[in-house]
Design a binder for these strands. Structure first.
Length: 253
DNA sequence: ACATTAATTATGT
DNA sequence: ACATAATTAATGT
């Protein structure tokens, strides 16, 4: 299996050297959670007990973390990487609802009053996530100050984003949709590189097409055109924005 | 205004 | 060498 063949690469470890291969991740440090909004108001002791109940796992890119309709037995905190939340239409097409960056909760079915996952979560890059059994959810909500308000805040933001997408898809035209999709991704996950800002995880034309409800061909044509005008620069699975403002103009006619 | 089909090329292991 | 990704042109609704 691929997962076992690869060396476990932990958070931001490009320059790190590994002493020895491990089959389990190292003991979790409290600093992993202290800065993350749902846990930021907690003291060390509380975070310790939270971590002791967590299990941590590393995922290759393109791996499902959970599937739509499954009983939601665990909820997750993404520590590193990106996941896309995907729904399958009646015709079997994939539609990407949104992307979740590191530092956010996912699979929080309980927060939506559900006991099954409402969508499928697939890693968009190599990722690491903590998870807890869902029975702890109510405990977290009641015991830990700020946990509930923060998570419901992000839930609100996410449904807002999905609503925006629906409005976009039904009203705006394709060029405007992919323009604003790129801008959203850049705002959420953008990483400054020399000539501009780059989407921080590998994303194909097909992925963009699923995000914007179009075809990979249209996406390809648009990106090629924008590249010639110097708006963006893209190679395989990478999109860099050189002129965000111009994209903003394209996204709102 | 956009999708679909198909053929061709580029790119990463 | 092979599979996957991207481009490009032609044709269709």
């Amino acid at each position: 299996m691929v997962l076992l063949a690869r060396k476990p690469r932990l958070w931001h470890s490009k320059t790190m050297t590994h002493d020895a291969p491990r089959n389990t991740l190292p003991r979790l440090d409290e600093s992993l959670l202290t800065h993350l909004p749902p846990f930021s108001r907690l003291d060390r002791r509380q975070i310790r007990t939270i971590l002791d109940q967590a299990s941590s796992r590393r995922y290759d890119t393109g791996v499902q973390i959970f599937n739509e309709g499954e009983p939601a037995d665990r909820f997750f905190m993404l520590l590193d990487g990106y996941v896309r939340v995907v729904r399958i239409t009646a015709t079997g097409e994939q539609v990407t609802a949104l992307h979740i960056p590191a530092g956010q909760l996912l699979g929080i079915a309980k927060a939506l009053g559900r006991d099954t996952y409402p969508a499928t979560a697939v890693t968009a890059a190599e990722s690491i996530a903590l998870s807890w059994p869902m029975r702890l959810w109510d405990e977290f909500v009641s015991e830990y100050d700020g946990f509930a308000t923060e998570t419901y805040k992000t839930v609100g933001l996410r449904v807002g984003e999905m609503n925006n997408r629906i409005v976009e898809i039904t009203t705006k035209q394709v060029e405007q949709r992919v323009a604003s999709a790129i801008l959203r991704l850049v705002n959420q996950t953008g990483r400054k590189v020399d000539g501009g800002i780059e989407i921080d995880f590998p994303i194909t034309r097909q992925d963009m097409a699923e995000l914007t409800a179009t075809t990979l061909h249209t996406v390809s044509r648009l990106l090629s055109g924008w590249e010639k005008q110097g708006l963006v620069q893209s190679k395989r699975k990478r999109i860099k924005v050189r002129d965000p403002h111009a994209l903003v103009l394209l996204s709102q006619p």
